[in-house]
Design a protein around this nucleic acid. Structure first.
Lengths: 142, 142
DNA sequence: GGTCAATTATTGACACGTCAACTAATATAA
DNA sequence: TTATATTAGTTGACGTGTCAATAATTGACC
């Protein structure tokens, strides 16, 4: 029982630690932060989307989304415009240059992930995905 | 091949997302941040330890460790003193009150973790731990 | 002994996240 | 129609992480 408890703890510990270490490496390899790339990818597939919708998709705080978009707009990857029918909403979309750059970032990300999972068999990968998915469900239900 | 790439990405995506969602819940449940508790737990088992050692154990940046300790000292959980033989080093240890509070925090953490892993069998838990450990090794070797 | 290198700890600048307070626009209900 | 509630987005305060620069101390070599 005691042993059991420690092992459980190790799992969560390891996952947190793993994420903590992977994040900076990921950012160095791809040249962009995980969160920002998530936003950009969502914009890539959504064509034009409301900030609110975007926020729900990527599950980051409104405030953070606003700030990311402001910077992305300054750097020319994104344009925003108000919804003429309801001025509370603002639509966001990628510029052409933005699209190209997102595609490049995604390729980098693919490379990174492939290299991290290179020695995992298909069975192991799907087992891992399953376990993580269940874990996520448990966490969300708390 | 294409499908393969997407699945791989899902694994990493899920893990990042999972961690991102779990962190705040963990902190609300236990009343302390994951990182700070890691520091405290290390102090708990190490009795008296150098900041440098501590930093290596918990794998957080020096700067962050310094700031955590400063706050912990102010709140009376920790005391620091310079090594008289080498003034560059400072030893850190928990106060008695600190020890009690760490123990309480750890119990909370156990409760949290048990509830997150409650429907996992022993086999599943050890499989998950294995997979995560391998993943971690790959990430560290990059 | 004096200079230079290495090591520890601290601090500042910055990135990113949360929450709470605020503004502006719209919907709803008296 | 006017007052109230709701909603989207922005901003500020704050916590925590990184990296880079700095201060203080010690060790090593001339």
């Amino acid at each position: 029982m005691e042993r059991n408890g420690r092992d459980q703890e190790l799992i969560i510990q390891r996952m947190f630690e793993l994420t903590k270490r992977a994040m900076p490496k990921f950012e160095r390899c791809t040249g962009i932060s995980q969160s920002r790339l998530e936003i950009l990818r969502e914009l890539f597939v959504s064509e034009e989307i409301t900030q609110r919708e975007l926020q729900k998709k990527v599950n980051i705080d409104h405030a953070a989304v606003t700030r990311h978009l402001k910077q992305l707009e300054e750097s020319g990857m994104v344009i925003r415009r108000k919804n003429p029918d309801d001025n509370r909403f603002t639509y966001v979309q990628l510029t052409d240059e933005g699209k190209q750059r997102v595609a490049a970032y995604c390729e980098e990300k693919q490379r990174f992930i492939s290299s991290v999972l290179n020695d995992f068999s298909e069975e192991e990968k799907s087992a891992l995905l399953d376990l993580l998915t269940r874990l996520q469900k448990n966490i969300e239900e708390m």
